[in-house]
């Protein structure tokens, strides 16, 4: 089925923007919705507030947030059950930061007490002992990470992380990427994010999809074409997104070179 054949509009839900969405994470839903609309697809972007039943959707975007709201969100989503049922029927879920953690088996609150996650990803998060991971992150996609429609590997991930959690990826999930710069999952294995089926999570908060449009189109492609080998989506003029990606990746390289020089300088004294 190609996008033009769809009778019903694509529904993209931003999950609990009133609880989760501390860092502009609602932008991920905007990116997906616009990229669908620009290709002529019917699309509905739903702000699914807490305290109401979760609407059914083709793609759920879950954002980051503070400890209290994260626990409330996980509790509500578990009681509601809509998302778990939707995932069984092929819905796409994209979680960032706290939204990534709560997709897993368990995650900590501010006192390090473990809370039940949704269990949609085989990951477990505990509180880190070191300083918060804050800064630009670059990661290359894991070899077994999902590939773009047409078969090419996804390009490097670029984004900003800000979290204190350490996440380990269990056997039923796969790491999404390998960290080149930054912290990511932080468990010592150098991984970042996780995925399983059509559920994807990452520590890259904020509108990570604006900097990683290939990942955005992968999620969109899954929702549009449920077959195992979806057709590539029609191309868009992505020159501004590409310019931003290039500039951010260069900025990280530049600052890495700066670190090396200052280390050499210190070592020489």
């Amino acid at each position: 089925m190609s996008p033009g054949d769809r009778n019903s509009a694509l529904t993209i839900a931003i999950v609990f923007p009133d609880l989760l969405g501390t860092y502009g994470d609602g932008g991920n839903g905007i990116v997906l919705a616009r990229r669908a609309a620009w290709r002529g697809m019917g699309v509905e972007l739903v702000q699914a507030g807490s305290g109401r039943p979760l609407p059914s959707a083709d793609i759920y975007c879950i954002g980051g947030g503070e400890d209290g709201p994260q626990v409330r969100a996980a509790t509500s989503l578990n009681e509601d059950g809509t998302m778990a049922r939707a995932v069984e029927q092929g819905a796409v879920v994209f979680g960032v930061c706290a939204g990534y953690q709560l997709l897993g088996r368990s995650f900590p609150d501010s006192t390090d007490r473990a809370h039940d996650g949704l269990g949609l990803l085989d990951i477990t998060t505990r509180k880190g002992t070191g300083p918060r991971a804050v800064g630009e992150l670059v990661a290359t996609m894991a070899p077994d990470a999902p590939h773009q429609a047409g078969g090419a590997a996804l390009p490097r991930l670029t984004g900003f992380e800000n979290h204190g959690g350490v996440t380990s990826v269990g056997p039923s999930a796969r790491a999404l990427a390998r960290v080149v710069r930054g912290v990511g999952n932080g468990g010592g294995d150098g991984t970042e994010g996780a995925w399983s089926g059509r559920v994807v999570g990452t520590y890259l908060h904020g509108p990570v999809l604006a900097r990683n449009i290939a990942l955005a189109d992968l999620l969109l492609g899954w929702a549009v074409d449920p077959s195992d080998s979806p057709e590539p989506l029609p191309p868009l003029d992505d020159s501004e997104e590409t310019a931003l990606r290039t500039e951010r990746l260069r900025a990280v390289e530049r600052s890495d070179r700066g670190h090396v020089v200052s280390r050499l300088f210190r070592a020489g004294r």
Binding site: G21, Y23, G24, D25, G26, G27, I30, G135, E136, F160, N162, H205, G206, P207, A210
Partner: peptide, 9 residues
């Protein structure tokens, strides 16, 4: 602040 995510808010 080094993070520009807020632009999306």
């Amino acid at each position: 602040g080094l993070d520009t995510s807020w632009l999306w808010d």
